[in-house]
Amino acid sequence: MDFKGISKQIRKDTLWTIGNLGVGHIGGSLSIIEVLVLLYYKYLNIDPSLPNKEGRDRLIVSKGHAGPAVYAVLANKGYFPKELLGTLNKNGTLLPSHCDMRLAGVDMTTGSLGQGFSCAVGIAKASKLSNDGAKIYSIIGDGESQEGQIWEAAMFAGSHKLDNFIAILDKNNYQIDGAVDVINSIDPIGDKFKAFNFEVIEVKDGNDVDQIDEALSKAKEVKGKPTMLILHTVKGKGVKSIENAGAGNHNMKYDLNKTAEFLKEVEEN
């Protein structure tokens, strides 16, 4: 499957979804496009026509502000009509900028950072109790990893050897107020998760579909402990002016005229 090509489409849809509104969490949405594509188009055992099917694999995007990227993938997978992307954050929408499970395909409501990761650990525990063989994935942010609750959840997952749990860290190096390293460094983050009894897999280029693919296939085979994939990504990936904005791209204003330029840039790359 052409994961690169699909990623290009999802990236464009994400850019349009926020551009159509005029403002949004573009940086942290663009940094996880490739991993979302790999999960939804290869790894997750799901059926978009049966969004609540029991025993399905689940993805909890704990960094809930990446909602626009998640919605773009779900629309392309056929969970709902693509036109709904035009309702992001508009009055009465089912697509608030933070992931909301009232929308088909979203497995958990997230947005208050750290909580989704705990919910995901609860879901992994529930899947173990049900003995249904499901894999439970969760994406967290690097800024989010400053939350104490991340470590409460990690400790439980490691302690209880939840090997059906595959965590993914979007290490894009920026949070709202600046560079993560400057504000409150989370490093050495791999060592921290190792110390919490996770198998840790570093992905040097977290926006490279082949590297992500290889890491996810390894993660699926890990037995006896949960896995943490550390994706070294670029916040705002795919549009140079957005990437260069650094922390400024967390919640960024741009209109549809600008969007047209961005889409052209993505198309030509």
């Binding site: 909890i60 958990m108 909580q115 705990s118 609860g122 879901i123 525990k125 529930a126 400790m155």
Partner: peptide, 26 residues
Amino acid sequence: PDRAFDVGVAEANMASMAAGMASYGY
């Protein structure tokens, strides 16, 4: 032993884990 368990001194994790488990039908 499987359905009655302790999360340790971590109430925030307990609350959100419970929510996750409820989303699974527990």
